[in-house]
Amino acid sequence: MAKVSFLGLGVMGYPMAGHLVKAGHEVTVYNRTTAKAEKWAAEHGGNFAPTPREAAEGADFVMACVGNDDDLRAVCLGDDGAFAGMSAGTIFVDHTTVSAKVTRELYAVADERQISFVDAPVSGGQAGAENGQLGVMCGGDQGAYDRAEPVIDAYAKACKRLGENGAGQLTKMVNQICIAGLVQGLSEALHFADKAGLDGKAVVEVISQGAAGSWQMSNRYETMIDDKFDHGFAVDWMRKDLGICLDAADENGASLPVTALVDQFYKDVQKLGGGRWDTSSLIKRLRALDG
């Protein structure tokens, strides 16, 4: 069992930190909104600290799950940042979905301080975090990963190292590229079924057992048909992630025409007021086009 700090108690981080306590680790949390950290500590019996530095002091592992590149820099760097409170030989594990650029930047800063840095973005959404069933894709030094993996296991269904620093974030980009195309295809399919006068739920019960089946289909088709989008991963977050994917593609020369198109479709959903809707709300755009 380890002494662990967890930075960021959003819809993902809050339950992830709770799983660490259940696994027997000693956990101290930090959140930008202190009231949420206090609530978490009261619920789970852990501790909370007013700054990332104070949360990280004395910890063997510091985990972070915040919003974006700038949020990650804010909790890592500066006099009150986590790196300032970490000792040589400790490990920072970043579960935020950020650019590979900021990952490499922070890896270099951590390395200078003899701190190990593992980029470890997650997939599985809020339900995966709550149930401790996340997919965790990691980049970083093999030794650091080997030490961190048993701790990450508290909320992971699968955890794998894909390469050196930045490899985890690049793998998460692959994940989001896949999801974007799948959700748009499912939206079009369900919309077509409706316009054709078919029972969409009955259709999916059949086609989900064949080559068309996917996690998105099995877990989202009913709520999409019922026009319910108050769960899961929000459109605003998906657009942030797809922007990271498209920027990386500009750097490495990959062609992502479908991803770029779906990103614009999500922009349309935002214009409909759906920034906080689940990503499966792409079907709302198609319905809106019908007037």
Rank of each mutant, 00 (worst) to 15 (best):
Phe61Cys: 02
Gly8Asp: 11
Gly168Met: 05
Gly8Tyr: 09
Ser208Thr: 04
Lys36Glu: 14
Gly18Thr: 13
Gln270Leu: 03
Arg276Asp: 15
Gln126Phe: 08
Ala202Thr: 12
Gly274Phe: 04
Gly140Gln: 03
Asn252Ser: 08
Ile283Lys: 10
Ala248Glu: 15
Ala193Ser: 06
Ala23Gly: 02
Pro150Asn: 09
Tyr221Gly: 14
Leu272Pro: 02
Gln264Cys: 04
Leu77Pro: 03
Ala202Ile: 03
Trp40Lys: 07
Gln176Asp: 12
Asp119Val: 03
Gly128Val: 13
Val206Met: 07
Leu162Asn: 09
Tyr266Thr: 01
Leu20Phe: 04
Ser87Trp: 00
Lys201Phe: 05
Ser5Tyr: 00
Phe233Asn: 12
Cys76Gln: 02
Met238Trp: 09
Trp215Leu: 14
Ser281Ile: 11
Gln126Lys: 15
Cys178Val: 14
Phe48Gln: 08
Tyr14Lys: 12
His19Pro: 04
Leu162Ile: 11
Phe265Ser: 07
Gly274Ser: 10
Ala108Pro: 07
Ile207Met: 03
Phe117Gly: 01
Thr33Asp: 13
Gly58Asn: 00
Asp111Tyr: 05
Pro121Cys: 02
Gln264Leu: 07
Asp60Tyr: 00
Val262Pro: 00
His191Tyr: 06
Val27Cys: 08
Gly213Asp: 02
Asp236Trp: 07
Leu242Cys: 12
Tyr155Gln: 09
Tyr107Gly: 12
Arg73Asn: 05
Ile115Phe: 02
Gly89Leu: 03
